[in-house]
Simulated assay, not measured.
Amino acid sequence: MAEGKIIKALSGFYYVLSEGKLFQCRGRGVFRAQKITPLVGDDVVFEATSPMEGYIMKVHERKNELVRPPIANVDQAVLVFSAVEPDFSAVLLDRFLVLIESKNIRPLIVVNKMDLLTDKTKQVVEAYIHDYRRIGYDVIETSTVENSGVEQLIPYFSNKTSVFAGQSGVGKSSLLNAIRPDLQLKTNDISHHLGRGKHTTRHVELIEIGEGLVADTPGFSALEFNDIEENQLPTCFPEFVERSDECKFRGCTHIAEPKCAVKKALEAGEIPSYRYDHYVRFMEEIKERKTRY
């Protein structure tokens, strides 16, 4: 038996990359009884009589998995947001960041379409970029039209499995095409009638880029915190974690407790008010979910 990684799942088949060769496999029938669904990114053991005839025999334990998009064993999430068209959304970015942080996946923020900024919008977007860099996130500014910033991305992919994620229409496929023109991934501009992007990627597939694997994923704009508990949410905000030891109470939620270091930093302007507002909003959503279910 051989070992490999699932790089594509389509129409009931799993395409396994092993020692530079691709094998088309089906899952064992027993997986259904065991409630195991192989995912793109899974490290597997398989048997194959030919490149077109194989069976996945075992799925190794995952270090993490995402539901939307369905992918496992991710090292890094490249969160692509546009400066405009659609407008940069800090609340949507923070939703992505919370989900990524909760899975212990390294985030990389990419702000695309920087060429479309006007003097007025540039000031706003650059203020956001400054804030996220101050928190400690890596932020790369790109433009596929001007081909700027694209080369800065390539070293981040080395020896990692990365997932490209973000709202539809922000230019995820365009960025991948700029990095690897031979991919010729289908792209679409945003729908001006709907104010959001049209979905162009229909399935998850890992693509070899440099010394790593990168997934282009279907675009989506709704994110739920179904797997995140109240006590986990504060750990998904690095600037809160940095100050939590200074709070008077262990397990401080940074909302109603006195002598809270996070609220003190907020009042001092060390934490952006919109980040804290999003945190409170997300905490309320998690509490409402628990009440509902």
Rank of each mutant, 00 (worst) to 15 (best):
T142K: 00
N147H: 10
L66K: 04
S89R: 00
P155V: 05
R134F: 10
T142M: 01
N177W: 02
L116E: 08
D94Q: 02
N147P: 01
T118F: 00
S148I: 02
N159H: 14
K160V: 06
D131V: 01
K113G: 10
V150G: 10
S158C: 13
E151M: 04
R95I: 01
G136S: 15
D131S: 10
L93F: 03
N73V: 08
V80A: 02
V74M: 07
P86S: 10
A83V: 00
D75Q: 08
Y156L: 08
V98C: 10
P86H: 03
I129T: 08
K122N: 13
V74P: 15
P69L: 03
T118G: 13
R134Y: 07
T161K: 12
L99Q: 11
S143F: 02
V163F: 04
V111C: 04
I109D: 11
S174G: 06
S174R: 03
V150H: 11
R133W: 11
D94R: 00
I109T: 07
L93I: 01
T142L: 07
I140K: 03
L99D: 10
P155I: 06
S102I: 07
Y128W: 15
G171I: 03
D87P: 02
V139P: 09
Q123M: 08
S82F: 04
K160N: 06
Q123C: 06
S162D: 12
V139N: 11
S168A: 14
V170T: 11
I129V: 15
T161S: 09
E101S: 12
D115L: 00
E146S: 04
L99T: 10
A77Q: 05
G149W: 01
A90L: 07
Y132S: 11
D75M: 09
R133A: 07
K172H: 05
V163G: 12
V74Y: 09
A77G: 13
N112M: 05
F88L: 06
I129S: 03
A165Y: 00
G166S: 11
T121A: 03
E101G: 07
S143Q: 09
L117P: 04
L93A: 06
F157I: 00
F81I: 00
L176W: 02
A90D: 10
N104A: 12
K172Y: 11
V110H: 12
F88G: 08
P86G: 12
S168C: 12
V163T: 14
L79M: 14
R134I: 04
K103A: 15
Y156F: 15
G136C: 14
G136N: 08
